[in-house]
Design a protein around this nucleic acid. Structure first.
Lengths: 103, 103
DNA sequence: CAATAAGCATCACAATGTAGAACATATGAG
DNA sequence: CTCATATGTTCTACATTGTGATGCTTATTG
């Protein structure tokens, strides 16, 4: 089963779509979660997700911007979608009937 | 942040309410997730959740049933509710706008 | 008291989470 | 043309969580 952070990464990558790459995904995560995501955490997780076949990555070309170094592009695979979906479903099921309100 | 399995355990415990104890929680998890939950996984996690103050456990009294050994009763603390809530909210946020359908 | 049932604790190891330093490569300034 | 600065990625190390197997306790039943 996916871990929670792995889920965050896959979700962010999916949201980024066509132009998903390392640094952008990181920003996306920070925006949606409102907490900081360290560089290391991100790339380590990308490596693991790729080796499990849940995402596919490849080096893009460098762009003509200052510091426009080649980016590591990311795409979520079908298997990745299935796993993410399963994770979400499981969390949803586990929560069914609960309210999580502090009484 | 809570781990995924920790979330399953807290949720199950919350659902069990008054009569939540080790073995019952385990069954609850197996029913909602449809997959098996090993004994070790459960108790190890209960220990960790308790040491983080997310649940409180205590030994109940033994009952007059065959093998009616004393049970380890479990109650989710307010802190536990907050954490579980935060976990759920984060997963929900990360999912916003996504559909998770295999195209 | 032996057999069996229900439940719990412990240990060991695998998988995930997380931070930070180091490295690479692009442009822009002078 | 080379130095400062910006964008991005790789590597390394360690902390936290996930998971299964095995064994220990304490209860009833015959």
């Amino acid at each position: 089963m996916l871990g929670e952070f792995e889920y965050l990464v896959i979700s962010a990558a999916a949201r980024c779509g066509e132009n998903g790459y390392g640094a952008a995904i990181r920003e996306e995560i920070e925006q949606t979660t409102k907490r900081s995501c360290s560089i290391g955490a991100l790339y380590t997780t990308l490596d693991r997700l790729e080796s499990k076949g849940l995402i596919k990555t490849w080096m893009g070309e460098s762009t003509a911007e200052r510091g426009g170094r080649a980016k590591r592009m990311v795409r979520v695979t079908e298997k990745g979608v299935r796993e993410a979906s399963a994770f979400y479903r499981e969390v949803t099921r586990a929560t069914r009937g609960l309210v999580w309100e502090v009484k």
